[in-house]
């Protein structure tokens, strides 16, 4: 079922080249498995859109969604910067800008749907949870982290801001001083720190995040679904206006030559530490 041999179809159990999902006992498990570290590019996005369509049909039967990675390096290293660079180099500037906006709007639709889904969503993370990977986790209601998880918003080093809804969701969930620290320094931080600042709800031992997420999902299954959905809707507003503004700011920044230079530097880097901001 791996390696893109099976086409994704809407339904309760599907596998693609980047991700797979299964619905069992009221819990949807979405597994990410695009090597090297689940970078989010056009193929992943297409599969996420299929998952989003399936989620709408599955959510009547589910009370929880768990998103996790099957890959050792981590949960998700964020946007596929190599694809972004190659695509924007291959076309005219205006077309590249349109392509970026289209990509952002599509991924925002997926993440907004996960964010607002009437079931409890859990990101079970380990290892690298950077950029778009952190933004995916932030769309979930709970983040359960392996103690070896590492989080980061490295976008400023490229002359960009997070573009997959990270800033509005971070602002929704954390204090503004913490948001400024994480965004403006671009430093990475571990799971203990993530729990201290209120980003992560549980820190567990190495290799235990998925087990802990499943235990949490089993507990959630004891509650009335409609009550849980009503509580979530009341507690967790979707910052629509800021999400739209984030796309605009990202696109304005993306048009600057410094960004293309930053992307080229990353793609062509032979630095032993390209992931260190």
């Amino acid at each position: 079922m791996r390696g893109g041999k099976t086409e994704l179809k809407a339904g309760s159990c599907c596998a693609g080249s980047s991700l797979s999902w299964i619905l069992s006992n009221g819990v949807i498990e979405l597994a990410l498995h695009r090597e090297p570290c689940n970078e989010l590019g056009s193929v992943s996005l297409g599969e996420f859109e299929k998952f989003a369509a399936a989620l709408e049909s599955m959510q009547a039967e589910a009370h929880a969604l768990i998103i996790y990675s099957e890959l050792k390096p981590g949960f998700c290293a964020g946007a596929d910067l190599r694809e972004l660079y190659q695509r924007s180099e291959a076309v005219e500037k205006a077309e590249a800008a349109r392509g970026v906006r289209d990509f952002l709007e599509r991924i925002h639709r997926v993440l907004n749907l996960i964010d607002a889904a009437p079931l409890t969503t859990i990101a079970a993370v380990h290892g690298v949870t950077f950029g778009g990977g952190l933004e995916l986790a932030l769309a979930c209601d709970l983040i359960i982290a392996d103690k070896m998880a590492r989080f980061c918003f490295p976008e400023l080093r490229l002359g960009l801001i997070p573009g997959f809804g990270g800033i509005p969701r971070l602002k929704r969930d954390l204090g503004n001083a913490v948001v400024r620290d994480l965004l403006l320094t671009g430093r990475s931080f571990n799971a203990t720190k993530a729990q201290q600042i209120g980003l992560v709800s549980q820190v567990v031992g190495e290799g235990e995040a998925l087990r802990a997420a499943r235990a949490t999902a089993a507990q959630l299954g004891k509650f009335d679904r409609d009550t849980a959905a009503a509580a979530k809707k009341f507690i967790k507003p979707i910052p629509q206006e800021e999400l739209r503004r984030e796309i605009d700011i990202f696109c304005e920044l993306f048009a600057r030559p410094a960004v293309q230079a930053g992307l080229r530097k990353f793609v062509e880097s032979t630095d032993a530490q390209p992931y260190l901001p």
């Binding site: 090297p36 570290c37 390096p73 981590g74 290293a77 290892g127 690298v128 103690k147 070896m148 998880a149 590492r150 990475s188 571990n190 799971a191 203990t192 630095d271 032993a272 530490q273 390209p274 992931y275 260190l276």
Partner: peptide, 14 residues
């Protein structure tokens, strides 16, 4: 590699 270096950093911080 760089990702494993982050692993080492996390291990040391913990």
């Amino acid at each position: 590699d760089s990702l494993q270096t982050l692993d080492l950093l996390t291990k040391l911080e913990n």
